[in-house]
Design a protein around this nucleic acid. Sequence first.
DNA 1: CGAGCCATTGAGACCGGTCAAGTTGGGTGG
DNA 2: CCACCCAACTTGACCGGTCTCAATGGCTCG
Lengths: 249, 249
Amino acid sequence: MTFISGQVLAVDGARCEHCSLHSRCLAMGLEGEQLAGFDALLKRPRPLKRGEALVHQGDRFSNLYAVRTGSLKQVQVHGDARDQVTHFYLPGELVGLDGIGSGECAGNVVALESTYVCELPFLQLEALMQDSHTLQHRLFRSMGEELRDHQRMMCLLSGRTADQRMASFLLGLSERFRLRGYSPACFYLSMSRGDIGSYLGLAIETVSRVLGRFQMRKLISIKGREVSLEAMESLQLMAAEGVGRHSGS
Amino acid sequence: MTFISGQVLAVDGARCEHCSLHSRCLAMGLEGEQLAGFDALLKRPRPLKRGEALVHQGDRFSNLYAVRTGSLKQVQVHGDARDQVTHFYLPGELVGLDGIGSGECAGNVVALESTYVCELPFLQLEALMQDSHTLQHRLFRSMGEELRDHQRMMCLLSGRTADQRMASFLLGLSERFRLRGYSPACFYLSMSRGDIGSYLGLAIETVSRVLGRFQMRKLISIKGREVSLEAMESLQLMAAEGVGRHSGS
DNA sequence: CGAGCCATTGAGACCGGTCAAGTTGGGTGG
DNA sequence: CCACCCAACTTGACCGGTCTCAATGGCTCG
């Protein structure tokens, strides 16, 4: 009994209100029966092994997922071998919003390491939102934020140099870790160089070279997938820096 | 009286249910008092002259806008002169969704020609959604579709050649016109070459060269801003075509 | 008619992709 | 414990697409 509960309950039995990510979750701000309703509709954390898929591209969309621990990538497949990473998900983030439009999952979502996610049936979520203005508002906010992030990404991909893309990427991760209470200067990259390259629109060799360059200039130090940002200001400067390409008018 | 009503009423006085875009609008599927509520909350079409701004980056977000006629571009400004076009809006499309997340407008939205938009106060929209599951669902769908579009765009910008980007862009416009009942083969580009270049992450000279190349190959014919797609299959082939750059594994 | 914007066209440079070897490191089996 | 393998990563040389700079033509508007 205690044997079973040991590792399972720690993650599995916790109610939303006790979740360490509560403040970053959709459920934030819910109270009383609405929180209870939310608690009731979500399926308890589901474990994924590294490399295991949460959903596949083209699957019927029916759930959102909140990342509890670990991380995932979303991969868009285009006929040929032209896979493309479109998203990385960290704890507290919501997976699947892009399926709401078409009713099917927009890409394969794959765990980058051992990962737990909470499953939120969307139909029930919609129903619950009818009673909870707060929940409705929060979900709209989440989608709006994701739209904004995508726009930033589009700006990044369009007309910025490899160095600028990488600097933005590292700073973006740093910020996301900071918000979650981890060190913003020192973290582990759960994704491969290939994933990073695909995400940033760079060849894997370029990723490697840029990271090497950064290290030489003492902007970062990196060993394998353990990275630490040594000169964040310089990175910020580089990321924001004037013109990357086509200066515009 | 009739003098005034002539051009104003034609656009201004129409109820939602009589709007020619009704089937592509948020209001689609609403009936009875919910349609009336929607009708009541929206401010009647507002005219914009070419080059006039609908909202400015950083403005407090408070409305969505539905394009009635004309077209607009959204421009992201980054400190320096590095403007970047992130979106083109056609009739029936919803402007401003990306402001929901942060509470402020994500970019300047500027009319590309004489344009009418309907203004939808978001607070009232949220309230109305509490009573109308249909409306709530439709707005979520709209946001989901935009997320999806953004992902497609990210894939386009990352690792596709100039030719492929341009082909996708033209086909995308074509499809959007088709859905609105216009000719998918023959249309007017309300945006400048510079806007297209900024949107596609290409230098303006490249845009010009690619279009020239397409014309030489008899894929399109273009004179100024009037374009007609002569060989859509070839364009589709080109857009989807195997590997643009970094082939991936 | 000149000013100014938009678009086209050419020549040259450079960033980043591609190809091709290495190198490292973790896991497996003898 | 070592040999081996495979995947991930690094490094170098070369090449090509696209940016940049510059000059020119066409259109619109004052």
